[in-house]
């Protein structure tokens, strides 16, 4: 008659929680716990995804699943948010992240040619990663440094007034760094 014990035995929450915790690591789990103490924890979803991406470089399906579980938000919502915003990457990135600004000021000063040169040199398109896993190339809309156009960033370091001629030596610099 009493079916309650069997329902309880179906609850695999401890297992799910343990997996999620393992996937995300302690630091991020702490953030999520903090968020859950606050009013409207779900509104911190974007901030948490930022932290996950900062930690792992991208958002893997396992990460999204784990965040959904620990924050108690439907996984559809989490993946909806992750895929909506351009800033979130859903694929692994290379060791160095090159982000070329394609904002208006950079565009009129020749950023399209710099981007073309980067694509030719690396043999990849925007949004892709080289086969050796060294470089990822992304285009973005305006880094807000229009006065120094055209600009690009490599892992957050800003390079100002880049010309197609300077692309090769710039890449070489990082290839050397990558080997070191």
């Amino acid at each position: 008659m009493n079916t309650e014990p069997s329902v309880q035995s179906m609850d695999n929450w401890p297992e799910v929680e343990a997996t999620a915790r393992q996937v995300l690591g302690q630091k991020i789990c702490q953030h999520i716990e903090q968020a859950r103490q606050l009013k409207r924890p779900e509104s911190h979803l974007i901030a948490i995804l930022h932290k996950v991406q900062a930690e792992f470089g991208y958002l893997a399906p396992a990460h999204l699943d784990a965040v959904a579980q620990l924050l108690q938000v439907p996984v559809a919502t989490v993946s909806g948010v992750a895929s909506f915003y351009h800033y979130f990457r859903l694929h692994p990135r290379g060791k160095f992240m090159i982000n070329i600004c394609l904002g208006t000021a950079c565009y009129v000063k020749g950023a399209d040619r710099v981007a073309q040169k980067l694509m030719d040199e690396l043999g990849i398109q925007l949004g892709e990663t080289t086969k050796d896993g060294l470089f990822s190339l992304e285009g973005c809309r305006c880094l807000g440094m229009c006065g120094l156009a055209p600009v690009l960033t490599v892992d957050g370091d800003v390079r100002a007034e880049v010309t197609p001629d300077r692309v090769a030596s710039l890449l070489e610099e990082y290839v050397r760094k990558g080997k070191a």
Partner: peptide, 25 residues
């Protein structure tokens, strides 16, 4: 609150959705 690279979030109702932790539509 941090944005995440969606231009449309400059629109006020989209921005509100984004602060609420949703897709910025």
């Amino acid at each position: 609150r941090l944005g995440a690279g969606a231009f449309v979030c400059g629109e006020e109702t989209a921005l509100i959705h984004s602060i609420e932790g949703q897709r910025g539509q």
